[in-house]
């Protein structure tokens, strides 16, 4: 869906998404990584369980929520990538906070 064609000077680090290791640039937004990783979604909705992916990338829409290092409903567009991060796509109602 999206690609990163440039050789950036950011360090490449591994991130684990639903058990699969992908490479990402240290410090880039986690949501960007999810938009280039098959099957290109971050969560399913509580009501109709339809798939959602990062939409606004600036903290406004909450469609980029995922489970990051065990914490549910994290806005992945606000989280910089760190080596070894573990990410799980988030399904349904369970963890939507307050």
């Amino acid at each position: 869906m999206f690609v990163r064609p440039f050789d950036s000077q950011q360090k490449a680090v591994p991130v684990v998404i639903d058990g699969e290791t992908v490479m990402a640039a240290e410090g880039e937004m986690l949501a960007s990584v999810l938009l280039r990783t098959v099957p290109f979604y971050t969560r399913t909705t509580p009501v109709s369980e339809s798939r959602r992916a990062p939409y606004c990338l600036m903290g406004v829409c909450f469609d980029c929520l995922a489970v990051v290092d065990g914490v549910a409903s994290v806005q992945t567009c606000l989280v910089p990538v760190r080596a070894g991060m573990r990410v799980e796509r988030q399904h349904g109602r369970r963890e939507v906070p307050l």
Partner: peptide, 21 residues
Amino acid sequence: PGVVSVGGAQIMLKTSGQVPE
């Protein structure tokens, strides 16, 4: 998924050098 705001796409460009495939 696949619909993204232009602002969001530009943020990915700025922060990751990321573009639509």
